[in-house]
Design a protein around this nucleic acid. Sequence first.
DNA 1: TCGGCGTGCGCC
DNA 2: AGGGCGCACGCCGA
Length: 586
Amino acid sequence: MDLVVAPTREGLLVGDPAAAAVADAPNQEPRPAGGEADAECVPWPAVADWVADQERSASGTGPRWVWPDTAAISPRLLAAGVRVGRCHDLRLCHAILQLAAPDPWPAPPWLTAAPAQPSTPSLLDDLTPVTHPAWEEVVAEHARQVTAVAASAEPGRLRLLLAAESAGALIAAEMHADGLPWDRERHDEILTAALGPRPQHGLRPQRLERLAAQIRDLLHAPGLNPDSQAALLKALRNAGLDLQSTAKWELAGIAHPVVGPLLEYKALARLLSANGWAWLDTWVEPGAHGRSGRFRTDYVPGGVVTGRWATSGGGALQIPRAIRAAVVADPGWVLVVADAAQVEPRALAGMASDLALAGAGQDGDLYAGLVATGVVETRERAKVGMLSALYGGTAGEAGAILPRLRRAYPRATTLVDRAAEIGAGGGTVRTWLGRTSPPPGPAWQQVQGRAGEVDADGTDERRARSQARDRGRFTRNFVVQGTAAEWALCWMAETRRRLRDLDPVPGLGRPHLVFFLHDEIVVHTPQALSDQVAQIVQESATVAGRLLFGGFPLSFPLHVATVRAYADADKDSPGPAGDAAASPAL
DNA sequence: TCGGCGTGCGCC
DNA sequence: AGGGCGCACGCCGA
C-alpha cells in the first residue's frame, strides 16, 4: 500500500493517495482550506514512532512511502533510528520520467532553502527546511508519475526502474548515516611507509622532497617545482625530451634517467594530495574504544546521466587500491566484499538477446569464454576488443579484433552500433529499463547546421563529423553503462531487502551496506552472520538478473570475499593470511 | 582573494 | 579518432 507524505513545519501530512486522487480529479475546483482532511498530520516529535509503527503493520511488508525527496527526509528518520523498507522518491522518479512541469521537482526553493533556525534548535528542527511542497502538490505529482508510467511503452520495466532508483535513495542515505569503517592508524602507517613521516603543514614529506631534488638534478633545473605542470614540461623539453605533455603514459615511453624518479614522484604526490593526512583529517571521524573511525561521503543516486551514482566529498568512488587496507571492520565484525564480473558485456548480451555472448560468460570469466570459443587468442585481447565495442574505440589493436566480435556476436554488436548511429544523428537512446539519454546540447544544432550551409568549408564539416562521432560514442556507451547500473541497483536493493530480514546479533547489530562502487558492494556484518550475508549477496545477483532479463539464460557471477580489511578482498593480491576465516585477528 | 579553467590521475 | 565521473593543483584574470 502507498502512503503519500508531505513534510510541513508542524509535522508530516500523511494520507492514502487513492482517496486523494479521487478528490483531486481534473476539472475539480480546488478544495477550500482544510480540504486536506484525508491527510493526517503527524507532529514531528511523534513522527519516528509513528513511521516505525506503520513499518511493522501492513502485513509484514510495510507501506511504500511516497515522498518528495528521500535525501531531505531520511536523515531525520535515520537519526531517530527508523529505517523504512520501501519508498517512491518523487524527485528521482520525476527525472527518470522526464516530466516537463514542474521541472525540476521539487522546484529549487524546496531543495535549497536554508534550514530553519529556531531559537532553541532541536535535532528535528535543525533538519527541517523552511518550505515544502504542499500535500496537494505531492499527491498531484504522484498521480502524474503513475499516469506517465501507465502510458509508457514498457510500464513493467519502468516500474522496476523507479523502485530500484528509490531503493537506491534509501541505501544512499543509510550508507551515509552508517559510514564506511576506517582505521585512521592503519591509514597513517600506509602514508608513512610510502612518503615518510607526516611533515609539518605545507612541507613536502621526506620521500617526495628527495625525489624532487633528484628530478631537479637530472634536468639541471635548480628551482623547478615538479608540481607545476607548465614548469615541468618546459624543463623536460629543455633537457631534450620530445614530449607534448607530462602525462605518465607519455613519459613511460621515453628513455631518460629522469623518467623513473618522476613517475614515482607523481604517484606519491597524487597519494599525498588525494588521500594524504589532510584528507584523513577532513573525512574520517575518529573511532573510539577499538572501533574503527568512519568515512562519510554524500552518495548521489542518479548523479550521472547514465544512472550511475556519483558522490560528493572525499572522492569516495576513487579510493585507490593502496589505501583500501585502511578500510577495516569493527571488532567482532567483518566485511563481505562482492564485485560482479564484466557486468557491461553481460547486460549487453541480455539487452540484445545474444545467446552466444551470454553463453561465453555462463561459467565465469566472460573474457576467458571469448578465448575458449576461439573468437580471440588471449584474454587481454578479448578485453580490449570488448571494451572498444562498448566505448567506441577503434585505435590500434582493437580495430583488428572488432570485426571478429561482430562476426561472433552480431546481435550484441549491432545493438551498440545502432545506439551509436542514433546518437550521431542527434537522437536519444534508452537503457533496458527505460532511462533516456539527454538530448544534444545547444551547440549541436549550431555545429551541425553550419556544416550544412552552402558556404561551409572543410573545417566546418570536420567539426560536425567529429561532434557526431563523439555523441555516437556517448550514446553507444550510455545504453550499456546505464543498463549495467540498473542491474547493480537491483542487486543492491535485493541485497538490502534480504539483509533486513536477518535477526540482529545481540550487542552488535545487523549487517548493513557500507559501500557501493558501480559493480561492487561491501557489507559490514557481525562475523557470525558473514556466511549468510555472502549467500544473500550471491542470490541477490541472480535475482537481479531475472528481474531485468527474465528467463533469458544469463549469469552474473560474483567474486565474494569475507575479510577484515577491504584490501584483502583484492583478487590480485594474495592477502595477509589467506582466507579471513583462518586469520587469528578474527 | 576568489572563481574558472586546464591538466592529470584515481576509480569503474 | 576511448565511455562515465570527482578532486587537487597551478595558473590567470577579475
